[in-house]
Amino acid sequence: MAQQLHAVTGTAYEEKVAQFMARIERGEKIEADDWMPDDYRQQLIKLISMHAVSEIMGALPEKEWVPKAPSLRRKLAIMAKVQDEMGHGQLLMRVAEDLLVPLGKTREDLLDDLFTGRLKFHNVFHMEAPTWADAGVIGWLVDGAAIITQTMSLDTSYAPYARALHRICAEEKFHAQHGESIVLALAEGTKEQRQMLQDAVSRWWPALLMFFGPPEDGGITSNQQLNMRYKIRSQTNEELRQAFFSKYVPRIFHLGLTLPDETIHYDEREGKWHYKQPDWEEFKRIIKGGGPCSKERLQLRRMSYEETQWVRDALLGKGRRAV
């Protein structure tokens, strides 16, 4: 009955957009089956599918250290942590997949986009993790950076994303503690252990700065503007990076570690951190697949996917066996 009524009324696209914007401004949450403007859907797909594949690619650098973790407890903890990363990938994939339904696309298409380079993943997961301390620094600082961006998005207007993020943030607290525990053990350890930690912090610093994306320098991109107008996210890249500095730079110094940036300091009067910019051209090269481990990690992911195609086919009963 009601559906017929709407069909007769025939609301124009612009009117629907206006109604949608009114919902957003009232702070209402949008569900997957609600009507939404095309560019809202596109922004979400872009953001969430990148987040999803980053979690899945993010499992790989740490996974290298799972079998090597230096005690039984650490072996179990890092296994649980990497498992969570895969789990976060699963949650976000599901959210992205539901958004892709009207476009006729599935998880297979998302993975295909990843393999062919159309879908990018976070710069940090293109980097090397050559020592055990890297596993600690990833847990402490990379996850720390992720907590900051994800916490900011908890209030996103898209309800399925918010539900996934609530689960993710709860687990990230465990990850951060897992990372802190590794880092503190190294910081309080032998000279060699401290050196290993210092090297890892120095190695990861530029990638950590890049994690939040380029600064806005006054003008924010149309992409960010759209996300803010739709309340998909609420803070700029630079605001997030500043929040990261405030939380972590003092702790890095408290451990007696140094940063590969002599200029970094907090200006009380301006209320902000000054720091040396990383090489943003390098950033572009990395996310385009030119990072030190980009190719081999994608290859690993693609190979494991292709070689298990028979499993998914068998589960769907393709080429059914005559029993």
């Binding site: 899945i56 498992q83 690993l300 494991s304």
Partner: peptide, 20 residues
């Protein structure tokens, strides 16, 4: 644990890891 991240399906990868 060597299988972690390399399983045939993301959901199964997660489930298998608990068994390990």
């Amino acid at each position: 644990s060597e299988w972690l991240g390399l399983g045939p399906h993301i959901e199964e990868d997660v489930a298998f890891s608990s068994i390990s």
